[in-house]
């Protein structure tokens, strides 16, 4: 009975970090499929929302309202990047696109660092209720439970929107066959703008769920590690996206949970194996890359269109 407790606790941990990987991955896949850009600046875009949240909270805005406002503002960063920069690059030039996302990442991360005044640590107030919930006799953090529920709820809502609404269908059409979508009268610039906006909001939500709550009641700290352009959570998010071959949204979400669980459950592994925790994500990603997961989700012809 007692031995079961840590497993449940760690699972909750894993699922909650997995939820954030999943949200990041959803945004990555959405932007990639609709616009052809693999967004290495995803983390930095989300980071700007966290900075906005911090600013508002420090100005005395109630934390939950500050979070909602930050979330509402978050699409600006992504849409600006798309309209001002990515729109101007020919789609075929993938290497240049990647290099530019790296540049944007650095730009936004530097902006964030500047707003924070280049400090080593900045305290972030939490906005989720702090406390414990009892589950099968195990005490779980409310923040973990709410994070999981919120992430799953929003992801489900987003997937339903993508599947059943007119705009969602237009985005899917652009993703599957851009030229045919344009010839059917779908405005590709508008679709790409929407994809960048929603992708940014998903990244912002993921970071707003994690960063202010890493240290429990203390709230969260932003350290120099978090202000890096490719924050540490982006690598598992890429991994999660790869589970869906970079193209399948529900699988990307599932991949997020898988990466979260593996990372946390390794804590329980016996000594030499638990050391693998730091590199587990990297090893999984290598495996996924070698498996070429994308071939399970799209036809060869669609893939060529994406990679062209």
């Amino acid at each position: 009975m007692i031995a079961a407790h840590p497993v449940i606790q760690v699972t909750a941990f894993g699922l909650s970090s997995g939820a954030t990987f999943g949200l990041l991955a959803l945004g990555l896949v959405l932007i990639y499929r609709t616009t052809g850009a693999m967004n290495f600046s995803h983390w930095a875009i989300g980071l700007l929302a966290v900075i906005a949240y911090l600013y508002l909270a420090n100005e005395g805005v109630p934390v939950v309202l500050a979070m909602l406002l930050a979330l509402a503002l978050s699409p600006i960063a992504g849409i600006a990047a798309y309209r001002l920069v990515f729109r101007k690059i020919p789609r075929a030039n993938q290497v240049v696109t990647i290099l530019i996302t790296i540049g944007i990442a650095q730009l936004y991360a530097s902006l964030a660092a500047m707003v924070l005044g280049f400090k080593q640590f900045t305290r972030l107030p939490p906005w989720l209720p702090q406390g414990k919930v009892s589950f099968v006799g195990t005490q779980l953090n409310t923040t973990d439970v709410v994070t999981i529920a919120l992430a799953v709820g929003i992801a489900a809502g987003f997937l339903a929107w993508f599947r059943f609404t007119r705009t969602g269908r237009a985005l899917r059409a652009v993703a599957q066959n851009r030229e045919a979508a344009m010839l059917a009268g779908i405005d590709d610039v508008r679709s790409s703008t929407i994809a960048w906006g929603i992708g940014s909001a998903l990244a912002a939500l993921a970071l707003l769920l994690v960063l202010p709550h890493v240290a429990g009641k203390q709230g969260g700290l932003i350290t120099t590690f978090d202000i890096t352009p490719f924050g540490t959570l982006l690598i598992p998010a890429f991994g999660a996206a790869l589970v869906g071959g970079l193209v399948n949204l529900p699988m990307a979400l599932a991949g997020g949970f898988a990466f979260g669980l593996v990372r946390e459950l390794l804590v329980l592994a016996p000594k030499p194996w638990s050391d693998l925790r730091a590199v587990a994500a990297a090893l999984l990603i290598l495996l996924l890359l070698v498996l070429r997961t994308e071939r399970f989700f799209v036809t060869a012809q669609e893939r060529e269109a994406l990679e062209a």
Binding site: M38, Q94, V95, I98, T232, L246, A281, A282, I285, E307
Partner: peptide
């Protein structure tokens, strides 16, 4: 690996 996949691999390798 090509382009994009290579970029992801590089980032992952560097970190690991």
């Amino acid at each position: 690996l090509k382009g994009l996949y290579l970029a992801i691999a590089t980032l992952t390798f560097a970190d690991a």
